[in-house]
Design a protein around this nucleic acid. Sequence first.
RNA 1: GCCCCCGUAGCUCAGUAGGAUAGAGCAGCGGUUUCCUAAACCGUUUGUCGGGUGUUCGAUUCACCCCGGGGGCGCCA
Length: 554
Amino acid sequence: MRKALTEILRQAIDKAITSGGLKTKIPPPVILEIPRDETKGDYATTLAMTLSSVEKTPPRKIAELIVENIEDREGILERLEIAGPGYINIFLRTGCWLEALKNAVSRGEQYGKLDIGEGKLVQVEFVSANPTGPLHIGHGRGAAFGDSLANLLRAAGYNVQREYYINDVGNQMETLGRSTYIRYNQIFDPGIPFMEDGYKGDYIKDIAKSIVSEVKDKYFRLPEGEAVPFFTGYAKDNILDGIRKDLEDFGVRFDNWFSERNLYDSGEVDSILKALKERGYLYEREDALWLNTTLFGDDKDRVVVRSNGQKTYFASDIAYHQNKFERKFNFIIDIWGADHHGYEPRMKAGVHCLGYPEERLKVILVQLVTLLREGKPVSMSTRAGEFVTLREVLDEVGRDAARFMFLTRRSDSHLDFDLELAKKESAENPVYYVQYAHARIVNIFRQAEAHGILPPSTEGADLLLLSLPEEIRMIKLIAAYPELIEASALALEPHRVTFYLQDLATALHNYYFHHRVITDDLSLTEARLILLQGVKQVLKSGLMIIGVSAPERM
RNA sequence: GCCCCCGUAGCUCAGUAGGAUAGAGCAGCGGUUUCCUAAACCGUUUGUCGGGUGUUCGAUUCACCCCGGGGGCGCCA
């Protein structure tokens, strides 16, 4: 719809230029907006105002000129108005909207699936929590966001891969192993003191217990150096299994789990350092090896090999990104917790050093979550090992509510997650509000069937019977759905889908309350069922993108 | 000190590729059910878009400065 209109306007401008009415050589892009106020048209454009300064002509005059040159070959325009300082307000014929509804319903589940991604290969890397403890609520937000973004991009026609990067090398793995080792020993001798910067969470004790049940006292009092690798491996695998399970129950499945260790084992880290050295980006200072990231906008250079010979995480991160690009992704999206934001310039500089344009790496920061219970913050402290896990939230509020809540804000703004609100079964809780709209429609279809009315076909029904303002409003929302998908995907903002769904649900509930779908008038009933079929489809499709179920009854 | 994000109705937040009278939910107040699910609906109240300057025909949106809140600034991850 928007496409056709844009074309009509573009041609009108071209025509005005050839006929000499407009002097500009470079026609401006046609921008169509949907006015807030329905009386101002289905679409509106500010073209005339934009052109006014170039043409040195009053905007309303230009608007007239454009309108005069418009040719509506397919007859989709009802009327045009020039309003305010020079808007061109465009009213479409109702038939266009009915056509759009028909199209939506006949495309079924394919409606809202676009091809703007052109099948391009995109990777979304998210969560990637270190395997040193269970996922907490902040990871949950990252998971909900990343997964929905991947769904969204897929709907827009991209070929999307979801990846989880496992930091299974380095100091913290060592710490994990030692913490587990000590907890294990403490089972046999409670007098043994715990280490200072160890992981204090109870889950480590649980892991130690399960080790005892498997191998008894095989490692008790064994020298630390000998024993720790086993504990590291065991604890890591155990925690990773838990993370996988949590994510699965959260409805998030990764296509690939990528191990940092593999980058070392395969020699990729060394070879990339060598390559960077050959390109002259590395230099030595104070016994350490530095990458000259300031060349590309970082505010200081970064160490890749420490003076003690240990490679930094940044070194493997560069190798990791090299690996990603070698896998032919057209672009890659890294989703990080907001606490990593200082890392972005250096990673982009790193990508630059690798010889890739940094536009191909998109970093999205997800702000932290404050957990509330009845409006009061729930204390969370990672240090003390007390934090609210994703598992606990899932168990308490359920997957649908949790996923929806995480997408009620843009990713870069703080999120207050109220446990009580998420559990409420009322209008305050937007999750049920939207789901209820879906369930209601399904119920109407059930009722219709009970009355012996079968789901009508789009060809057979007389859609002209849909003339109520509430009906037209819903049809317009349905018609706008593909545009919503496109805009959200391009902006990488799945939260827009959440907002849209609430609008659509509102329209549905309002309509439902004021009008009966199933009446003695069969033709009208059928037309309305077609409309509801469209609403249902779009609700379901949108909910699927944000990873929330569309229940058949509630 | 430097960098990033945020500041919009009483509360929580949308909205900005510059556009018309800035929106929603919640809270408040008042209503709706012999009728396809009331997990619903309707009505009503609320704004110096943190402040200032600039660019523009036009700024909540862009630029700069200031104020306030949060976060990040290690040969840590």
